[in-house]
Computed example of a mutant assay.
Amino acid sequence: MRKLMLYFLVVLPSISLAEQPSCEDVSDLARDVMRNRQANIPMAEMMKATEGMPMVQSIIKEAYKIPRYGSEEFKRDAMTDFSNNWYMACLESGE
Rank of each mutant, 00 (worst) to 15 (best):
N36Q: 15
I66P: 01
M47C: 05
A39F: 07
R37P: 00
E51A: 12
A63Y: 01
M46W: 00
Y64H: 04
V56A: 10
E62Q: 15
D32T: 11
A44W: 01
L29H: 06
R31I: 06
I41Q: 07
Y69S: 09
R31A: 15
V26M: 09
N36E: 12
E51L: 10
M55V: 04
M55C: 02
R31H: 10
V56Q: 06
A63R: 01
S27G: 13
P42T: 06
E62R: 15
A39M: 12
A30T: 03
K61V: 05
M43V: 00
D25S: 15
M53V: 14
P42A: 14
R35Y: 06
M46C: 02
M34A: 07
K65F: 09
E45I: 06
V33D: 02
Y64L: 04
R37V: 04
Y69P: 02
I60F: 12
E45V: 11
S71N: 14
P42Q: 13
G70Q: 05
K48D: 00
R68V: 13
K65R: 15
R31M: 08
M43W: 00
K48V: 02
G52C: 06
P67W: 08
A63H: 01
M34E: 13
A30S: 12
N36V: 08
Y64N: 02
G70V: 04
S58A: 10
A39P: 06
G70N: 07
S58C: 08
R35K: 03
R37I: 00
M47D: 03
N40H: 10
A39L: 13
A44I: 08
M55I: 07
K61N: 12
G52N: 11
A39G: 11
Y69H: 14
M53K: 13
A39T: 08
R37L: 01
S27L: 09
I66K: 15
E45A: 10
E45S: 10
M43D: 00
N40Y: 10
I41P: 05
R35N: 03
D25K: 10
M47N: 05
A63V: 02
V33G: 00
K48C: 01
Q57L: 02
M55Y: 02
V26W: 05
Q38W: 00
P42D: 13
I41Y: 03
I59G: 05
S27D: 13
A49M: 13
D28N: 13
P54T: 11
M46N: 00
S58Y: 08
A39Q: 11
Y69E: 12
G52L: 08
A49G: 15
V56W: 05
Q38P: 00
L29C: 12
S27P: 04
S27V: 08
M34D: 07
D25N: 11
